[in-house]
Design a protein around this nucleic acid. Structure first.
Lengths: 134, 134
DNA sequence: GCTTGACCCTGTAGTTGCTACAGGGTGTAG
DNA sequence: CTACACCCTGTAGCAACTACAGGGTCAAGC
């Protein structure tokens, strides 16, 4: 499989595949006589894994750990569970942060009376001292 | 006011203040004879504004627009309202994305039977074809 | 009067996770 | 045999900072 085929099979860009190889996430494949990268099914599986994990928001650091863990089939699954749970906690925190932010922004917008900028509550909210901001 | 004072007054790092100046968000201040930056209250107000807006998740692009708009006090406030509403929509989309992701991750974790990695549902979810991933 | 230490200066490189060139080589279809 | 799609390496760019390296300045204490 050439890099373009691998990329389209995993909805990844060619540059991204090469990037993953560069940072050591994807092992370097064999090369053809023309120096083209030649991938096998193991690469396809690994790249699919990486993409899925990235889609679920895992960082590279976490993906790397998951890959290492997934290579040792006899090991307990608990370490995998821990990584996933830590990640879940992070997501919950992000959602909470965004929700708080959303509420504040919504309140700010709600106070807009559509007058001139001089009376704008949104601007006032941003610059509490309402003086010259330039 | 020296840069350190301005920074601590706005809970910003000194490097960040200099960075804002470099990218043109904060106008260059006067200098003392020792070439130290000397800030006034106008700088303090503008930096406060920037920080507030950044805390609310506005991008630099948006902050720049808001600053430009806030300088023209006679203008209608509607443009400000539009920027804020667009931003609110983006936040809603992010929250929705994260919530969907959270649900999927939660489901994945919920299926963990704490056996060995070979049977791990989390790993299986990530690598749908369950074969060799290395 | 001299040293210590906190602060300031510029400039550059690193972070995360890619993306987009520039400037080439290769392979195949018409 | 000539287009044209694909491949190669290497570097620079994006957001929005952060962290040095290698220096200069200033006030206080001995």
């Amino acid at each position: 499989m050439k890099i373009g085929e691998l990329a389209s099979a995993t909805a990844t860009k060619v540059e991204t595949v090469r990037y993953y190889e560069k940072i050591g996430l994807l092992p370097p494949p064999a090369r053809t006589s023309a120096n083209y990268r030649a991938y096998g099914n193991d690469h396809l599986a690994r790249l699919s894994f990486i993409r899925r994990a990235r889609d679920l928001g895992f960082t590279f650091e976490a993906v790397r750990e998951l890959l290492t863990l997934s290579d040792d089939k006899a090991q307990s699954c608990d370490a995998v569970d821990v990584i996933a749970r830590v990640h879940l906690t992070e997501i919950d925190r992000k959602i909470a942060d965004l929700s708080a932010l959303r509420a504040e922004l919504d309140r700010t917008i709600g106070s807009c009376r559509h007058g001139t900028v001089a009376d704008c509550k949104i601007i006032e909210t941003l610059a509490p001292r309402g003086k010259d901001t330039a």
